[in-house]
C-alpha cells in the first residue's frame, strides 16, 4: 500500500495530538496500517507541538525533512516554521488564525504577515488549502473543536485514502456527549472549507 506521511504542527492546547490519535484510531478501524508519533513532556509548556502519522507500508514513526506528503498546520507561524518538512508535491492545509508566541507579545520578535506567509507557502508547494479554523470551530459552537475542523479539512482535501465516515464514526465513539454535536459540525465545516478554501490574500487577518 502507498505510504502517506502526514505531519501535524500546532501550539500546546490546540489539540493536534488528539487529532493525530483519532486519525490513527480511524486507520485501525479501516484496516489501514498506521503508526503515530507524539512528543510529550517539557515541550508541551506553551511550546510547539509536532506529531506525525505514517500510513501504509512504512514503519518509521517520524517524518524527515522534505518528506511530508501532507502538512496540517494548526497555526500559520508554526506552518511556516515546518516548511522544511515539505517538498513541492506536499499538500499543505493551514489554519490562518495566528497565535502570537510570548516572545512577540513582549516585543522580542515580529510575527510574520499572514497573507505574505500564505503567498510564500503557495509559491513553494503545489497545493495549499487555507481556512479560518478558529472561526469555523466557533461557528460549530465550541472553540476547542479546531482539531475537528482540521481533521475535516484533511478528509476534504482527498489527499489520504481514508473514508471520512470511518473517521466520523471514530470521533463519535470517543467524544463526550456534550461536545458531540459541535465536534461533528466542526468536522463537516472542515470538509466544506477544504472544498472552497480561502483564496490568495484573503485571509482577512490583519497583521
Amino acid at each position: 500500500m502507498e505510504t502517506k506521511r502526514i505531519v501535524f504542527v500546532g501550539v500546546g492546547g490546540q489539540g493536534n495530538l488528539l487529532a493525530t490519535r483519532l486519525l490513527g484510531e480511524a486507520c485501525l478501524a479501516a484496516g489501514i496500517p498506521a503508526v503515530v508519533s507524539e512528543i510529550h513532556g517539557m515541550a508541551q509548556r506553551g511550546g510547539i507541538v509536532e506529531s506525525a502519522l505514517v500510513m501504509g507500508d512504512a514503519t518509521s514513526p517520524i517524518v524527515s525533512e522534505g518528506e511530508a506528503d501532507i502538512l496540517v498546520g494548526f497555526e500559520p507561524l508554526e506552518t511556516l516554521r515546518a516548511l522544511n518538512k515539505c517538498n513541492q508535491d506536499t499538500v499543505i492545509i493551514v489554519n490562518v488564525h495566528p497565535l502570537p508566541p510570548f516572545t512577540v507579545s513582549i516585543g522580542q520578535g515580529v510575527y510574520p504577515d499572514v497573507d505574505k506567509a500564505l503567498e510564500t507557502i503557495r509559491n513553494a508547494v503545489s497545493s495549499l488549502i487555507a481556512l479560518d479554523g478558529d472561526e469555523l470551530a466557533a461557528k460549530a459552537g465550541n472553540p476547542l473543536s479546531l482539531n475537528m475542523v482540521m481533521l475535516g479539512a484533511l478528509i476534504g482535501s482527498k489527499s489520504i485514502p481514508l473514508d471520512g465516515d470511518v473517521l466520523k464514526d471514530t470521533i463519535s465513539k470517543t467524544t463526550k456527549q456534550a461536545f458531540l454535536d459541535s465536534n461533528l459540525k466542526a468536522f463537516d465545516f472542515g470538509i466544506a472549507a477544504a472544498h472552497s478554501p480561502l483564496g490568495p490574500a484573503k485571509s482577512g487577518i490583519k497583521s
Binding site: A43, E78, L83, N84, N87, P101, T103, G109, Y111
Partner: peptide
C-alpha cells in the same frame, strides 16, 4: 525539501 528564500526570521516559541 522545498527551497524557501523569502521566509522572514521567525520569532521563537520556547516553552
Amino acid at each position: 525539501p522545498v527551497e524557501v528564500t523569502d521566509v522572514p526570521e521567525l520569532p521563537g516559541r520556547p516553552p
